[in-house]
Structure formats: C-alpha cells, structure tokens
C-alpha cells in the first residue's frame, strides 16, 4: 500500500498522460491544446485569432506525434517533447502563481557543457527539485534542461517512476550522474536526501550531512563545475511536526510525515502552504584544476563537500535575513 502515501505527491506531479489511443483522442483534444496557450501568450505570437489558430495547430501536431509514437526518448527515458509541452506546463502554475518563485544568480549556470547543481532539500515532498527544474528551464538564457537525480524510492513507485523518467530524472548513482555530466548535461542533485527532506520542522534551514560526498568525486571525474543552489521557502510548505516511524516502516518508506493538516484532513491536508520561494544559484566551484587521481582523495572530497555545504548554508541564512515574511 505504498501508493497510499503518494497521493499528495501525485497532486503536484503531472498526473495526466498524453492520450494513448485514438479512441480517446477526440475527447482529450482540448486538454492537450490547453497547456499551450499560457506559455504561447508570452511568446508574443501576435494578438487576435491568428495566434489561437497556430496554437491549436501546434497542439494538434503535438497530439498527432504522440498518438503515432513519432517522438524520441534518450537512453534515460527522457522525453523532451512531453516535458516541454505537458509536464512543465502543469508545474508552471504552481511555480508562478502558487509559490511565486524568485530566481537569483541564474547566470552562474554555465551556458553549455556539463555542470552539477547541488541544492538543499526540504519540504517533505520533493517539490523543491521540480521547482528548481522549472526555474532553470524558464530563466536560463539557453533554456537548459535540468536532469535531476532522484532517490530509488521514486523509481520503485508505479506511475511516479514513469513520469520521473520522462521528465528527465534518473537514479542518484555515480554511474548515471557521470554519464549525464560527460554528455554535457546539467545535473541537479540534493545530497541531503531523505535526511534533508524528512527533517522535522524545528530543524528547518539546517543543512544535514551531505551523504558521503559522492557528488564531488563524480563532478571531479567529469571535470564539471559545481553550482551551489539555495532554496528558501520549501521548508514551510508542509511543516512536519511529527514522524510516524512505525507506520513508515510498515509502508516501507523512510518517514511518514505528520503536519498540522496531514493526515487529519485527508487529501486536503496534502495541499502545500502557499509560501514565497527564492532560489539562488551561487558562484560555480571549478573542479577541472585537479589531477585525475584527486577523485580518490578522501581528504580533498571532504574539504570540497564542506566548501559547497558552507556556501549553501551561508546563502540560506542571508536569504532568510532578507525575507520579509514566509508567505509574501
């Protein structure tokens, strides 16, 4: 019954799949077109009926490619078209209107080539990763796609694993990370893992241990810079006041969150609080100056890990001081 716990997750994750069969094609047609208008309006395709026609045509052309299977996925199962057209469009209202994410320092993300973005992790459900993905894609001048590294739990859950792969996420392991970095992709990782996302509300904005620093050696091997990223606002979306450990163990999940509203209000309690977010990308830390054997040096690994961690923590404190209110 692990699925029961995923209900809130599903709420924020794009649930609708593109139509699979023609039978439903006619019925879902307006839906498939729907995601397009909002972004299209800002693209400035021109006022009046002309842009609507183009949008409908674009939506139908997209639908045609989907029902005939005429699209590409990469080795990791990343479906760029689906991510751009549907998944991102579903996350964008949450990003723009609900959390009103403010992005700073996006120029610190390289224009091209591999880079490892290391961020803090919080919020009971991994919404921060998804928001970071939208932030990078929408604000970066090169519209880069962020490839997130996710916990194995994500790939064990039905439906979630499918969507995660299509959105470009992959398992957080050194092999996958290195392969993506060497292919010149932008990789996002949250080294705190479950310790970060499942920490009690009282510990908010206190960075947990950064795993074993495996992400540093992966970046070093690939010779890609590390971009620290601090996310403020995600800690308060689900204030976790308790953890039903026995229940979590029964369900086979790392923690079972108890917030002032969840599980008391049922699905309603799974609605996140509308906090105001800030995502700040920091100065990149270069890793190409080290000799190849440096990736095996534990001392250097710990130092670099600490450096990244300190930088994120300091930026977090700075952003918190600047913040006027949790919600505005």
């Amino acid at each position: 019954m692990a699925d029961a716990k995923v209900i809130p997750f599903d709420e924020d994750r794009p649930r609708r799949r593109p139509p699979r069969r023609v039978r439903v094609a006619a019925a879902t047609e307006p839906e498939a077109v729907a995601p397009l208008p909002a972004p299209g309006a800002e693209a400035g395709t021109g006022p009046g009926g002309g842009s609507w026609d183009r949008r409908i045509a674009g939506g139908l052309a997209f639908l045609r490619r989907r029902v005939t299977g005429d699209y590409e996925v990469d080795d990791f199962g990343y479906d760029e078209e689906l991510t751009d057209q549907v998944l991102m469009s579903l996350l964008r209202p949450l990003y723009d209107k609900y959390f009103r994410v403010e992005v700073k320092g996006v120029e610190n993300i390289p224009k091209e080539g591999g880079a490892l973005i290391v961020a803090n992790h919080s919020g009971t459900l991994p919404l921060d990763g998804l928001m970071m993905q939208v932030a990078v894609h929408d604000h970066h001048p090169a519209r880069r796609h962020l490839r997130l590294l996710a916990a194995d739990l994500v790939f064990m859950l039905p439906v979630v694993n499918e969507l995660a792969r299509k959105a470009g996420h992959t398992l957080a392991c050194a092999e996958d990370a290195q392969r993506l970095l060497e292919a010149g992709e932008l990789v996002g990782v949250m080294p705190e893992g479950f310790k970060g996302i499942g920490k009690p509300f009282g510990d908010r904005y206190k960075l947990q241990r950064f795993g074993r620093g495996g992400f540093v050696s992966t970046a070093l091997r690939a010779g890609t810079p590390i971009v620290p990223c601090s996310i403020v606002g995600a800690e308060e979306i689900y204030p976790m006041v308790g953890n039903a450990k026995t229940l979590a163990r029964l369900l086979g999940i790392p923690y079972f969150p108890i917030t002032p509203t969840f599980p008391w209000l049922g699905p309603l309690g799974a609605v996140p609080l509308p906090t105001k977010w800030t995502i700040q990308f920091g100065e990149p830390i270069p890793t190409d100056g080290y000799p190849p054997e440096a990736a095996e040096d534990p001392m250097l690994m710990f130092n670099l890990t600490d450096q990244v961690r300190e930088q994120i923590q300091h930026t977090l404190y700075r952003l918190l001081v600047q913040r006027r209110s949790v919600f505005f």
Binding site: L36, A57, G58, L60, A61, D84, Q85
Partner: peptide
Amino acid sequence: SAGPTVEGAQR
C-alpha cells in the same frame, strides 16, 4: 505549418 518550431518557441 505548426511543426516543432512553433512549439519550441514557447516561453
């Protein structure tokens, strides 16, 4: 006329 280019122009 509405190839991927139109859709690529979004946002």
